[in-house]
Simulated scan of single mutants.
Amino acid sequence: MSDCWLEVRRTDTPLILAFPHGGTILPNVLIERFVSPWAARRDADWHIADLYAGLVDATTIATGLSRSVIDCNRDPSGASLYPGQATTELCPTTDFDGNLLYRGAHPDAAEIARRRTDYFDRYHATLAAEIARLRAIHDRVVVYDCHSIRSVVPRLFDGPLPLFNIGSNGGATCAPALVDAVAAACAASGRSHVVDGRFRGGWTTRHYGKPELGVHAIQMEIAMRGYLDEPADPAPGNWPPPYGPARAEPLRLALACILNAVLDFAKGSA
C-alpha cells in the first residue's frame, strides 16, 4: 500500500486537526479475512473530513486507513483507555456492537506489531513532528482530535449521546480555559453537550496533551445525527448515509464557532 493512507496539510497557525478514524481503506491482503468489507468499514467516522473542511485555518493530519486495520487512537500497549467499559482494541476483533470482524483467526501479536510499525507509528510520528514544528513558532499549540459516532450504540453507552462530547481526561490534557471556551461555544449553539462524559479523550488526547509544556489537546466526539440522517438499524443498504452539504451546514456553523474559540485560545487571545 502506498502512502495514500496518510494525508497532511500544513499551515503555520497554532492549531492541528487530527482525523484518526475517517478512513475506509482496507489492504488487499486483509479483505478476504474480514466477515465483509462493509462490516470492516461500518464504524468509520463517516464524512468527518467533509464536516470540518474549510472551517478554520489549521494543519490537518488524516489517515485514510480503516480503524478495523489498526486504531490510531488506542494505547499501543493494548491497555484499555476505559477499564471496565466496553471498547475496541488496537487491532479490533469486533465492531462497536460486539460482532466479530474476522472470519477466522484474529491478528496475533506479530501481526499487530507489524501493523503498528507500518501504520500507527507513522501516523503518530507525523503528528508529533507537526506539534514540534508549530510549538517552535507558537507559545501554545492545540491538538483538536476530530471524531463522530452513531448516536445510539447500546454496547458502548446508554441511550443517545449528547451531540457534542468534549474530552479532556478530567482536565489533564489542556488548560481549563480551553475546555470552558469549547463548552461555551457548544452551549451557544443550543445543542446538547457534555464534558468528560462517556468519551474523555482517547490515546491521542492523553498522550500529547501536556499543557505545562504548551501543548493542549482536546477531543470532540460528535453524535452523527447532527449532520446525517441515521437509520435505526445500519445495514449495507442504508449505511453510511450520504453526506449532504445543506443537511450539515447548521452543524458546520456551530463547529466554525467552536474552532474559532479554540484558535483564539491557541493564539493567546482567549
Rank of each mutant, 00 (worst) to 15 (best):
E7V: 12
G268W: 11
T93D: 09
T11N: 10
I70L: 01
S2P: 06
F157W: 03
R135F: 13
T204V: 14
G84M: 08
R33C: 03
P162N: 09
I16L: 12
L161A: 05
V35R: 02
P37T: 08
Y119V: 14
Q219N: 13
N73E: 09
V194W: 02
Y243P: 02
T93S: 07
P14K: 06
D45I: 02
V152H: 02
A58W: 04
A39F: 03
L65R: 05
A184K: 13
W239L: 15
L81K: 02
R135S: 15
V179A: 05
S36T: 09
D3G: 14
G104H: 07
A248Q: 08
V262M: 10
F199C: 01
T126W: 08
V56R: 04
P242T: 15
A254Y: 06
I166C: 08
V69A: 08
S168N: 05
I112V: 14
S168G: 11
L6Y: 00
A261M: 05
F34W: 08
V69W: 05
L30H: 04
G22N: 06
A113G: 06
A18H: 08
Y144A: 15
F34I: 05
G202R: 00
I131E: 13
D180Y: 07
S68C: 01
S192P: 07
G98C: 02
P242K: 08
S77C: 01
L228C: 13
G197F: 10
E32A: 11
I31M: 09
S148I: 06
S192K: 05
I70F: 02
P245E: 05
T13W: 01
L263Q: 00
G98D: 03
C186G: 14
L228Q: 07
E7N: 07
C4R: 10
A49R: 09
T204I: 15
G190E: 14
L30G: 01
Y144S: 13
C146S: 00
G202Q: 11
L81E: 01
H138N: 11
